[in-house]
Amino acid sequence: MLRYKGVLHMVGTERKVIFQGVHQLMGTDLGPEWSPQERRNSKMVFIGIDLPQDILRQGLEQSLA
């Protein structure tokens, strides 16, 4: 995986969780609060070559609350 980033809706916080990384380095920050009319969902982008989509999907599905 070359690069990854996203905005996450996480249980226990009213703020967006921003994550980004390069190779094996990853960081997170708390972003702004979700606005009342905003749909709370997570969005992630993965950039790489020949990424194993089935393994990535399985791991992400296991992390859903």
Rank of each mutant, 00 (worst) to 15 (best):
28 T>S: 06
16 K>F: 08
26 M>R: 08
1 M>T: 06
32 P>W: 06
58 Q>S: 14
44 M>N: 03
64 L>I: 11
27 G>P: 00
64 L>K: 09
34 W>N: 10
18 I>Y: 06
11 V>Y: 00
16 K>L: 11
9 H>C: 07
56 L>K: 02
46 F>M: 14
7 V>Y: 08
33 E>N: 07
22 V>Q: 02
41 N>M: 15
42 S>W: 07
62 Q>C: 10
23 H>A: 02
13 T>I: 00
51 L>M: 14
10 M>K: 09
21 G>M: 02
17 V>E: 00
35 S>D: 13
63 S>C: 13
49 I>K: 10
52 P>D: 15
60 L>V: 02
55 I>A: 15
16 K>R: 13
29 D>C: 01
61 E>H: 02
4 Y>N: 06
2 L>W: 02
32 P>K: 11
48 G>R: 13
61 E>V: 07
37 Q>V: 05
45 V>A: 09
28 T>N: 09
28 T>I: 15
51 L>Q: 08
29 D>M: 11
51 L>F: 07
6 G>W: 15
13 T>M: 05
16 K>D: 04
50 D>R: 08
38 E>W: 12
35 S>R: 14
65 A>F: 09
7 V>L: 12
13 T>N: 01
60 L>K: 03
14 E>S: 01
44 M>H: 04
41 N>A: 15
34 W>A: 09
18 I>V: 14
38 E>R: 12
3 R>S: 09
34 W>H: 07
59 G>L: 07
46 F>H: 10
58 Q>W: 03
43 K>A: 14
32 P>A: 15
8 L>C: 04
11 V>D: 11
38 E>P: 13
13 T>A: 02
36 P>H: 04
38 E>A: 13
57 R>E: 14
17 V>A: 00
34 W>K: 12
42 S>Q: 11
19 F>H: 02
15 R>W: 01
43 K>C: 12
65 A>K: 04
3 R>N: 04
60 L>R: 03
6 G>K: 08
22 V>W: 07
39 R>K: 13
31 G>E: 09
52 P>E: 12
20 Q>V: 00
54 D>M: 08
18 I>T: 00
35 S>C: 06
55 I>W: 07
46 F>C: 13
1 M>W: 05
49 I>W: 01
52 P>V: 02
45 V>I: 15
4 Y>D: 00
11 V>L: 10
23 H>C: 05
39 R>N: 07
18 I>L: 15
17 V>K: 00
37 Q>I: 01
56 L>A: 07
28 T>P: 01
11 V>T: 06
3 R>A: 11
11 V>K: 14
3 R>C: 02
8 L>Y: 04
54 D>Y: 03
29 D>R: 15
21 G>W: 05
32 P>M: 13
49 I>H: 08
42 S>F: 06
42 S>H: 06
36 P>Q: 04
9 H>M: 04
38 E>T: 13
23 H>R: 14
17 V>C: 01
7 V>N: 01
15 R>Q: 12
5 K>L: 06
60 L>I: 04
